[in-house]
Nucleic acid binder design. Sequence first.
RNA 1: GGAGAGAUGGCCGAGUGGCUUAAGGCGCAGGUUUGCUAAACCUGUGUAGUCGUAAGGCUACCGAGGGUUCGAAUCCCUCUCUCUCCGCCA
Length: 434
Amino acid sequence: MLDVKMIRDKPDLVRQRLATRGAGDETKIDEVLSLDEKRRSLLSEVESLKAQRNRVSKEIGALMGQKKVAEAEAKKTETRQIGDKITELDRTVQDVERARDHVMLRLPNIPHSSVAVGNSAADNPIVRHWSEQPSFAFTPKSHIELCEKLGMIDFARGTKLSGSGFLLYTNWGARLERALIHFLLDLHTGTHRYVEVSPPFIVKSECMVGAGQFPKSVDQAYAVQEGEDTSTLGKLYLVPTAETPVANIHREEILKENQLPIYYCAYSPCFRAEAGAAGVGTRGMIRVHQFDKVELIKIVQPETGYDELESMVGHAETVLQRMGLHYRVLQLCTGDMGFTSAKTYDIEVWAPGQGQYLEVSSCSNCEDFQARRMNLRYKTEAGENRFPHILNGSGTALARLFVALIETFQQPDGSIAIPTALQPYLKVDRIPAG
RNA sequence: GGAGAGAUGGCCGAGUGGCUUAAGGCGCAGGUUUGCUAAACCUGUGUAGUCGUAAGGCUACCGAGGGUUCGAAUCCCUCUCUCUCCGCCA
């Protein structure tokens, strides 16, 4: 959520920065301003009435103490209507606040000034490449064919169990997935000094609002219901990413400054309804309703937010470097960035069987946008309460890493070579053909 | 799921309709005293909104939301969570 005071103080700047996203959100600023103005004027009215009521009530108390009942009764009558007026005004204030928050919760974050202005993915600047695209003496197969031949994924039975977009990992497929999760957590907790957490995979809607998924993307989430009890629907949701529970760990807290920076990493499955995306490149593992991911979260002082973003991207890149996979890093332009982000880098790994780059990581600094929504603050040494920057990054998404890995390291004989770094986890140096 | 007990500031804890502006204690910060440390004493010490150049004022907040009342931490209703016991369960 944006700071209302900033909108109040610099409406033109906010409008101009929002306009670079190209979604038309800048047009909602006037509505915020007028609701904010209305709220403040109502507030000063109702608060002075409350002050008056408090004063008279105290007088009544004193009169009762002196047994001057008649005078007290007279004052009661006098004050009675003030109470009614207060009740009425309080309701109006609440309505106006709700209306203001309704708009505010739907305004995206303001892009950082260093972010390239652009309309779509086509305008994302490429920041760097790592290594070369691997070359093959044969035509590299798609992961779909490889998985079927090697019995790593049973696509048909995954669909039988849960419908399209759900995967049944089998044998070496399941073991590779588990090895990758283990490898990623060890890398980030060891070398990169993140604290491992294992959060609930179902969260309250407040957490979805806090992390910024709700209200805008409700239709992308799986809602949970207890049995047939429809009254429980809308309270809990399957996590679309570990970012949701983990970023919310300290919601509604005031942290001590010396607790920062906080670095968390967590494995979780990610559940995404992908409403509206059906039929678009859905074959195989590239877009599915459930995938595994190891997520990185940082909660830091605003001064260090952007340095922390750079190092976080580096941590995600290390994963691909250790695997020996070719990738590129993009900076998302204003028109392509997510709702909560002020600045985002995407890491795309090369998938030879697809002949394209696949997004395996997205690292963002959301600045204080989420901290505001979840009311997470920290107290400075000077005693001031501030909102920290919250960063999230995939470190990395697994289904697509899995794809890149088996497509890159497939051998002429149909087997798959396992990168040295992963061998201690999978306990073999190759997955045998057939 | 059933029965019972609870939820008050950073922490402990008093408070059953108005001398509560939430007592008292602990902790923390500053000060006085002091070779140093400690002790003692004094002062201060929550969150947010709003008005104000500022000093400061006002309003709200005692788990959450409603209600009664001139006035609610206190009375009534609903809900959430925690603890104890029972049942069920991986």
